[in-house]
Design a protein around this nucleic acid. Structure first.
Lengths: 338, 338
DNA sequence: GCAGTCGATGTAATCGATTCCATGAACGAT
DNA sequence: ATCGTTCATGGAATCGATTACATCGACTGC
């Protein structure tokens, strides 16, 4: 590949002048500029980003470490992150942790080695020393969706408390009393918060939440299936299962189907995180929708603020309940929602 | 951040020795090695990948430019690519083209600027000059899923011809005669091949495929909806719609639902690309499944072969039909499939 | 008419690694 | 004892950019 030296030679100027033209520095004669631009054109020259980064100590790259790309929620998050980053002049490198702390660590390490300008993380666990050290050492960082308490890093997330209360109200209104939850890993904030919100809403309605109705999942479909199996094997199975993410809801659906049972007649189902397919499942699934795109964009803005020396801000947006038919019919309500 | 100089100073050796220890060069005394390792430990030193890349002209990074991350097929592809790459010691940077040639170009350019070691592309169009030039200039490249004819680049893809024939046989067997297709963009190989395979299979069964039954989509859900609307408005609407990808099938479902019609009674539906949710849609959707994970892995192996100087190989794997209920009941057959 | 300023340009240092080459010590062979 | 290897090590060049500093000519102002 042609380097800046080749361009300088071709244009009959020094490399400094070429660099100045490329970074449109004011002090360049019109003549030199056109000659350099012509040389760039004929040689098909493109600046070497690696060399530039070494010199300037900036990569114009953001790292995004997410828990699971195969989860449509995170896919959408990743997409909005990349869009906003691109709009602000940054690239994004995605690291998929697959809900595994060791993989998360691997990606954080690799990204740090590449000297990314900042890191967006949705932590899979309580946080490895590596990540915490990086945060303390001043690596610009922002948590998105999930976060780690006690670390001085801005957080961009959705608050589902309100929506979970709406959900419980909805279920209660339909006559359901035995509600169970498939929780996410307790090490994640979203894992524990959703259970807490659910528990709080339950007690508000005077409903008990026995331990047997709290299943431990790991945000993956298979765990949703297993936990649901367990619920169905109980002497007194729940009437409703609330899955703390969409993949576990999928697993729950698998379990119900495998037994030849039906939703919502035999078991009602609701999920945290709304995805397009929920409209077309049998039956359409009631879910709590997060403003995913807005979260991704806000997270990027916060991170770039931090990188460029402006004070970054934590952001919390509200999630909302989308009622469909997976918890039972309520003829009066389903029309307006989709 | 600590640099190699700091480590050298701390260990009381030269930077050359530090570098040798880090790259385990044989000629290093045991004494020096331990001192360097200790210094690395106390300083928390991590080599700067940017500097290393500049010197060695290798980034150990692969670029992956795909048409649409939000399409579960590509998400899975991306995931398997990253897995295999990681196993072979490479990182992956994903560029999402969103089916837009300009975005595809943007990502190819950015990746080339970063001097990635090789490029995996699922082209959105016939190929921009930029991409073709890069291929000609010797950038290691492999096409995956889609490809560009006439370019000397290995291709890793699935062949759906056989499966499409099976699908048409299945539909014919169920008594359907008026079959329509929602095609992908003609500029993509998958867009045109799937139509061709469909056309060939149709004529094999003596079925006509009028132009009105060939809808032009763009692999996005919205186009599937629009095309399906069009089909339904026809004086003689088709009995079956075959969507060339899963997102357009989703759009088709939206259209059918909006009219209060039912699948498969009012309109049967089949899709290219199988995804987990198809099991749980109403009704479960008959689809053609690609060996996605294997495609991703094979593509990475081919690319890395090329990068490391071994001759790369094109790979074609077979897709297969998965029968469910969206094309009508055939009581004898549905049991074994899922 | 001359000092001072400004604009355009080039030279060279620098970023953090890798690696060629030179050097010197140790050691075995003759 | 001397010569030739081999091993461990350090000095310095290098990758491709950016940028501080120096230089030089032209122009302005008094």
């Amino acid at each position: 590949m042609a380097s800046i030296k080749d361009v300088a030679a071709e244009a009959g100027v020094s490399v400094a002048t070429v660099s100045r033209v490329l970074n449109d520095h004011p002090s360049v004669s019109e003549d030199a500029r056109t000659r350099v631009l012509a040389a760039v054109e004929t040689l098909g020259y493109r600046p070497n980003a690696v060399a530039r980064s070494l010199r300037t100590d900036q990569t114009h790259t953001l790292g995004l470490v997410i828990s699971d790309v195969m989860n449509p929620y995170f896919t959408e998050l990743a997409r909005s992150v990349e869009e906003e980053a691109r709009a602000l002049g940054y690239s994004v490198i995605i690291g998929n942790a697959d809900e595994r702390p060791d993989l998360q660590d691997h990606h954080v390490r690799t990204l740090l080695d590449r000297r990314i300008d900042g890191l967006l993380v949705s932590p899979t666990d309580g946080g490895s020393p590596l990540m915490l050290d990086a945060a303390r050492a001043g690596t610009p960082m922002v948590f998105v969706d999930r976060w780690i308490p006690g670390v001085d890093v801005p957080v961009v997330r959705a608050d589902g408390r309100e929506a979970v209360r709406d959900l419980v109200a909805h279920l209660h209104g339909l006559g359901h009393r035995r509600l169970a939850i498939i929780a996410g890993p307790a090490a994640t904030t979203t894992g524990s918060e959703r259970v807490e919100a659910f528990r709080a809403a339950m007690s508000e309605y005077g409903l008990p939440l026995p331990d047997a109705y709290i299943g431990q999942g790991d945000f993956q479909a298979e765990s949703g299936r297993l936990v649901t199996e367990g619920f169905l094997d109980l002497p007194e199975p729940p009437e409703v299962v609330f899955a703390a993410d969409n993949l576990m809801a999928l697993g729950a659906l698998d379990a119900v189907r495998a037994r030849g049972l039906r939703v919502p007649d035999d078991l009602a189902l609701a999920a945290f995180d709304d995805i397009r397919w929920f409209v077309h499942t049998d039956p359409p699934i009631t879910a709590i929708a997060q403003p995913t795109g807005e979260l991704g964009r806000a997270a990027v803005r916060a991170l770039v603020d931090r990188i460029e020396g402006r004070p970054p801000q934590s952001v919390t947006l509200a999630a909302r309940l989308v009622v469909r038919r997976s918890c039972g019919e309520n003829p009066a309500r389903n029309r307006s929602q989709s």
